[in-house]
Design a binder for these strands. Structure first.
Lengths: 265, 265
DNA sequence: GCCTGTGAATCGCTTCACAGCA
DNA sequence: TGCTGTGAAGCGATTCACAGGC
């Protein structure tokens, strides 16, 4: 999902190539390990840790094998040691100043989110385009106006930016962030951002997640009615009129006409 | 990534099996199409739409081919028609009542998020464990106490629940939601939820996303300094004791220059 | 000629199954 | 004996490249 942008075939970093899928799971393992650490559990087996992280043990062992041989056969993994190794691999042994742009409901929630500071992330600044917000403290940090964006970025050496603005301003904010030196962006605005080569973008879209759930939910409902049968298979004929010849056509809700087809943004 | 839970071998739905990866992209296509629709663009080619959605055209065509042959060779896709087909496929032509549990900063932001209502989602209720919140309106909806959770779910026929509580209460809330009939959960709490077979869980974790970005960011920094070279020897001893008494295995010590912000050198 | 739809090749991740070692 | 580490098989997703139809 992330880092979609203009593909990255296998850009540099041939050495020590950790699969992207593995990288995405490291934070999950780290969280589970941290919990064990707090309970002073000294070692853990791949089976136990995998269970706590919600994956299967073979996958977990394979993942760890990319980092090195950090376990002990017949015993398991040393919790503290693994916490350190994963933290280091993820780059969490250093401090990452981040800026949050767009202090609306979501931006404010992000600013208040404890999960940032607890890892290596420090909210260096909150930025908003609304002059009325300027100076107002959110989560103990005064909101600054967008005008100062470039200065804030460079003064604080910020390389990670969080965009929580409305979709309309996201690309513009993104451009300014990148121009100012930000090379990683976490985007909450419902828009596809285009960025130059070398800049990473990850997207979090609340409504997309719900839509994916709805897809599966709908299917479940269908199964209740058709325990396994499934419609005779309509692969060939779409339930609704095919793309009417040429220009004129209309989405005729032939099937489960529930309500008008088109839905607003 | 989503629907992690206890594996799903290839659950029913043999026919019309749309790949999970494709399902995850449909909402993105839908958004791009909706934008085109608002600009009254009648048709679009796979190339144009792919560009707007941030994917390549071959992937987009392949994705659409799973839905059916909705395009016209030599022309492209009819925007309105495709909007309808994708909406229907995702189950957005019906109304999905959802409940949000945990009305803190994030929960409130979610309640105010316009992206829900605009699709087929309707916030049926806001639920919080804090009695002081009860009755207080958030986003125009009165918050109700957790005690009423079961009744709310069944009265409204809710099948999708959003958890925005602290990690500590997430599993408990999840259990109650499932018990009450919810079969899809969007989890914002930083915890792995365990649910029975048949229940879908998708997770959104803000700090995990940042950690993934940090990983790549760290790597970029390393490349700047070490264009490809790797410091051969680096007897860096981790601050934490290596795997107990055992040998000092550790494969390839910090092969990439590590930025020791917390670590000795 | 142009653009969709799709078999075939490819790539990457997951899972298996067992060798290797404490 | 118990559990890690890993080659190899398996599987799904992506990409290629071109046939098919407007």
């Amino acid at each position: 999902m992330a880092t979609d942008r203009t593909h990255r075939p296998a850009t540099s970093t041939r050495s020590r190539g950790i699969p992207e899928a593995t990288v995405a799971r490291l934070p999950v393992y780290l969280r589970a390990l941290t919990a064990l650490s707090e309970r002073s559990v000294p070692t853990v087996s791949s089976e136990e840790l995998a269970s706590a992280a919600g994956v299967n043990s073979a996958k977990l062992r394979k993942d760890f094998s990319y980092l090195g041989s950090y376990g002990t056969r017949g015993v398991g993994y040393d919790v503290e040691y693994l916490v350190y190794q994963i933290s280091r691999e993820l780059g969490l042994t250093q401090d990452w100043p981040v800026v949050i742009v767009g202090i609306g409901n979501l931006g404010a929630a992000l600013a208040n989110y404890g999960g940032f500071a607890s890892r290596g992330f420090r909210v260096a600044a909150l930025i908003d385009a609304d002059p009325a917000m300027a100076g107002r403290p959110v989560a103990g940090i005064p909101v600054q106006h967008t005008d100062a964006l470039e200065k804030i970025i460079s003064d604080n050496g910020v390389s990670i930016g969080v965009i929580a603005t409305p979709a309309g301003s996201a690309q513009q904010v993104c451009d300014r962030l990148v121009q100012a030196g930000v090379t990683s962006i976490l985007n909450f605005a419902p828009t596809v951002l285009s960025v130059p080569e070398g800049v990473d973008v990850r997207k979090v879209d609340l409504s997309i997640e719900l839509q994916i759930l709805a897809f599966h939910e709908q299917r479940k409902a269908g199964e209740d009615i058709l325990p396994e049968g499934v419609i005779p298979d309509d692969e060939t004929e779409p339930p609704v009129a095919p793309p009417a010849d040429t220009v004129t056509k209309r989405p005729d809700p032939g099937s489960d006409g529930d309500r008008p087809a088109v839905m607003p943004a």
